[in-house]
Amino acid sequence: MTERVIPPNAHSLIGLNPEACTSCMICVRECPVWCIDLASHTHEVTEEGARRPKVVHVLDEFTIDFGACMYCGICVDVCPFDALAWSSEIDPSAHAAGGLVHGIDQLVKWFPASGS
C-alpha cells in the first residue's frame, strides 16, 4: 500500500492559540458559513504604576464546526493576532455531525508550534 504523504503546508485543519486570541470577534463575523462561535468575559487587571485598572477580554469558549467549515481560510487571514493558523493534521471523522465541533482543548493541539 502506498504511503500517503501530507505536505507540510496542507490546509487540513485550523488550530487556535488561545493566548494570542483577544476575543475581538473578527473571525466570527467574517466567517461566511458562521461556523465559529466565541464566548468571552471582561476582567480588570491592575498593573503596577498604572493609574487605573486595565480591562482585558478573557476567552471562555471558542469552537469551530468543521462540519460547516469550508476551509476558505478567511479566519486565518483576518486574525490580527495570528491566533488562528492552518494545521496539516489529519481531519478526524465523527459518528455524528456534532462530533465535528471542536473547542479550545482540541484546537490548541492543532495550532502549529511555529505558526504558519
Binding site: S23, M25, W34, I36, D37, L38, S40, H57
Partner: peptide
C-alpha cells in the same frame, strides 16, 4: 432563522 454568532460583542454577555 439561525442566530448569527457574530452578533454578540466581545466581553460580558
Amino acid at each position: 432563522l439561525t442566530p448569527w454568532p457574530g452578533d454578540a460583542d466581545a466581553g460580558d454577555d
